[in-house]
Amino acid sequence: MNQPCRRTVTKSAVIADDDETIRSILQYKLSNAGFDLTVCHDGEAGREALNDPDADPDIVILDVMMPRLKGTQLLRTVRRGELAVDPDVPVIMLTSRGTEDDVLEGLESGANEYLTKPFSPNELLARVERLIGV
């Protein structure tokens, strides 16, 4: 994958999604927008990344249904302050579970935004930039 020529690393993001296609889209879109990325393949890896003492992402993007640890469970541990990362870090849930109950559960878990698949990467980026105040 070619690296974007206009990349300036001033922002960072943690992505946790078990779907390779989604990861590739997010990686390309966010790295093109100048994000330094930590990419995780499941919820437990996401938990480890967010529990790193140096973890200070500007934004976290989580899938809901992941092996080993669900995105909503991971988000709850973040919001309860159980991990090293700032409990108030902006979090976007990205999932194929789009019923009203699912969206409400995601938002009640503490998500700042909830996007359902299929999704528009441009819309996602706009929401990311709004959340981190770019």
């Binding site: 779907d19 296609t21 989604i22 889209i25 698949k117 299929p118 999704f119 528009s120 990467p121 441009n122 819309e123």
Partner: peptide
């Protein structure tokens, strides 16, 4: 086939 199932909007 895989990417069209995940994307919507301008990219799709």
């Amino acid at each position: 086939d895989v990417y069209l199932r995940e994307l919507r909007g301008r990219d799709a």
